[in-house]
């Protein structure tokens, strides 16, 4: 298992992407699978950065990657307020062309990208698990979950 600990800031997103890229390479995932893992992780980390912690705090996000043959399990831990991404809106927000509401896609994309997404709250920590398996399926080709 490899671990990355970064400040919960936008500047950390590139470091997170590199970390995910190394796990993907070690697991031998395809390009499509790699994109799904990158997108799911990016959306969940972005959500913590944007909504999880008070602005200006010195908080952190931890990522733990466990690589198996053709599979990556990524555990994201943070100390933000309790938030279960698996219990949020499941439907893709509709966009009214006359009154385009911006936002609301991130968690849906995360859920649709991961082969499995689970959550638990342990003490004061959010623990979100993303699993992506090698399948070479299109980025997101299954029903919203």
């Amino acid at each position: 298992m490899t671990t990355l600990r970064v400040p919960a800031t936008v500047a950390s997103l590139a470091t997170v992407a590199e970390f995910v890229g190394r796990a993907v390479a070690a697991a031998g995932l395809t390009e499509k699978d790699a994109y799904r893992l990158r997108l799911a992780t990016d959306e969940l980390v972005t959500n913590v950065i944007m909504h999880g912690y008070p602005v200006g705090g010195a908080e952190e996000i931890e990522l733990h990657a466990t690589v198996g043959h053709g599979r990556v399990l990524l555990l994201m831990e943070d100390s933000a307020a309790e938030f279960d991404p698996t219990r949020q809106q499941h439907r893709v927000p509709s966009v009214d062309p006359d009154d385009m509401r911006v936002g609301g896609f991130g968690l849906v994309l995360a859920r649709m990208s991961a082969d499995r997404l689970s959550y638990e709250r342990i003490g004061d920590r959010n623990r979100t698990i993303i699993i992506v398996r090698r399948s070479d399926r299109a980025l997101i080709d299954h029903e919203d979950r």
Partner: peptide, 19 residues
């Protein structure tokens, strides 16, 4: 080569202003 929901929101915001 990579675009997340933030990028989509920027595009939507620009479209809204153009419309």
């Amino acid at each position: 080569d990579f675009c997340d929901s933030t990028g989509m929101n920027v595009l939507l915001s620009a479209l809204k202003r153009l419309k």
